[in-house]
């Protein structure tokens, strides 16, 4: 059984035909060819598949696609913006991850960044701060130190208005 599901994906309306229980993760990766969202465990533990639905970070391996009908879904591919010069422009959290060494092997990075973006937009979602905001995103390379530094750098830059955050 498949059904039509319509949602907003990175700002554009998208309709897919899928089994209602298909994992949003698979729909993004296969039906939408957006492979930036990664699968690390398939059981809601590692956070590599984190995307933002209606403003909140979720693990896309845990979301049956029928539940995003009518929702706004943002994946890592939607973070960049088009600059005035026609060049794509990184989100400042992406820049911070490059600068501070927040990405090593990179497989957790898109999910980590999406969780961080949700936190930057809504710091009250994690009263415990950056560490709590990222507790659902496992990284095996960094020991998290450089990741914390990346997020803190992005927060500082947001405060100083060095870049426009979306």
């Amino acid at each position: 059984m498949t059904t039509n599901i319509t949602f907003q994906l990175n700002g554009r309306e998208k309709t897919v035909q899928a089994h209602p229980m298909a994992r949003l993760l698979d729909v993004l990766r296969q039906d939408c060819s957006l492979t930036g969202t990664k699968e690390g465990c398939g059981e809601g533990e590692c956070g590599a598949c984190t995307v933002i639905i209606d403003g909140r970070a979720v693990m896309s391996c845990m979301v049956p696609v029928c539940q995003v009908h009518g929702s706004k879904v943002e994946s890592i591919e939607g973070l960049e913006s088009m600059g005035a010069d026609g060049q794509t422009c990184l989100h400042l959290i992406q820049e911070a991850f490059i600068k501070c060494g927040g990405a090593q092997c990179g497989i957790c990075t898109p999910g980590m960044i999406m969780a961080a973006v949700a936190y930057l937009r809504q710091p009250e979602s994690a009263p415990g701060g950056v560490a709590e905001a990222l507790e659902g995103n496992l990284c095996r390379c960094t020991g998290y130190t450089r990741i914390f530094e990346s997020v803190k750098t992005a927060i500082d830059r947001m405060k100083t208005g060095a870049n426009q955050s979306r």
Partner: peptide
């Protein structure tokens, strides 16, 4: 319970 992503669902 779980992590924030789980708490959100």
């Amino acid at each position: 319970t779980g992590a924030i992503q789980i708490q959100n669902r």
